[in-house]
Amino acid sequence: MLLDFDFGVIIRSLPYLGQGMMLSLSLTLLAAAGSIVLGTILALMRLSGIGPLMWIGATWVNFFRSLPLLLVIFWFYFLVPLVVQRQVDAFQSALIGFILFEAAYYCEIMRSGILSISRGQASAGYALGLRYSQCMRFIVLPQAFRNMMPVLLTQTIILFQDTSLVFVVGLADFMTSAVTVAQRDSRLVELYVFAAFVYFVICYSGSLYVKYLQKKIHR
């Protein structure tokens, strides 16, 4: 049986699998960047003390955390073209879905990050004549980001794993490319083992880096 395995198929398909990986990585990075920005804005809204803004932030978080990501991706594939009244490619609609969905999780991370900074820090900023926005931008948020960096990265690793869900809208990410090759060449075991290995290496080195960061921050 073992002799039947042909791992050469992986080498022959590397350019195609590489394209899939590029799509997975660019989707991860763009979605993470977008949802960290949006999540931070939502966190500021939740902490603003202004009724309507707090309500919007809280509702957003509760809404998206109650839905399966798969449904959101699927939904935006059909919804976004209707809203903007023109064809939108699958990558863009998936990206928007990911940003809106993940923002709910990054929001809660940033919220606890902001709350971890003592009130005295903001007071010191105000006492120097800084406005609220300046206090946040120069004093509170940089410290909150730094404290929360390990958690933000962990969430981004989860996001990277979740990008494999884009197969539902026909995008060829790394996982989907592996499946395509596996079925085309009837090499299921080889390709699935390889895909698992690649995901493991990337995510595990990410986790190790998170551990290193945690140590560095708590030193």
Partner: peptide, 19 residues
């Protein structure tokens, strides 16, 4: 903010910006 910029304040716990 303008008024505060003209009044210096020093805190018990220093409140320097650690970053």
């Amino acid at each position: 903010p303008k008024l505060r910029s003209q009044i210096g304040m020093v805190f018990q716990n220093f409140e320097l910006f650690p970053h």
